[in-house]
Design a protein around this nucleic acid. Structure first.
Length: 153
DNA sequence: GCCAACGTTGGC
DNA sequence: GCCAACGTTGGC
């Protein structure tokens, strides 16, 4: 079992939206970055735990946890010209983008703001805290993941 | 809204 | 394959 962190903009899709999907879960599509794609395709596996992070909002923070309930599949939005994430250079014969399905597990009673994470020496080294980091899907070390779960319950 | 830090694109 | 121009992300 591995830990991951997925970013989402709460205005577009929040932890509450994910919670509302209940056991059905949510297909995490629309990822259009090769590094993130490689993780989704090759390394994110059913049963893994995913920290949900709200970005580009008033208080950027870790807000909850989800679990992966389905391994990667082709992200069909890449073929749909009307979709926001349409990729004209992608073909069904040679798809570029993939998506996994995750299910809401828990919304933390108190979100853990980015600001606080930066101040916790035990979390130093987390990819999320590295300057200039823009990845929307990233690995979380086991030690960091365990600690976060302990902090957040 | 600003801007730093990237990633991507395309001309050469 | 280099690199300038451009677009996007995301904290502040």
């Amino acid at each position: 079992m591995n830990y991951w962190l997925f970013k989402t903009e709460p205005d577009a899709f929040s932890i509450d939206d994910l919670a509302n999907k209940k056991s059905k879960g949510e297909l995490w599509d629309g990822v259009r970055n090769y590094q993130a794609r490689n993780l989704l395709r090759d390394e994110v596996k059913k049963g893994d735990e995913v920290f949900i992070y709200h970005s580009s909002c008033k208080v950027p923070a870790l807000v909850g946890i989800a679990s992966v309930i389905k391994d990667h599949q082709i992200d069909d939005t890449q073929f749909d010209p009307s979709a926001k994430y349409y990729d004209p250079k992608s073909t069904p014969e040679n798809p570029r983008w993939y998506a996994v399905t995750i299910k809401h597990k828990k919304t933390f009673k108190e979100p853990l703001p980015l600001k606080d994470m930066k101040q916790n020496p035990e979390l130093a080294g987390m990819k999320l805290l590295q300057k200039g980091n823009r990845l929307s899907v990233m690995p979380v070390d086991k030690s960091h993941g365990d600690l976060l779960l302990k902090l957040l319950g």
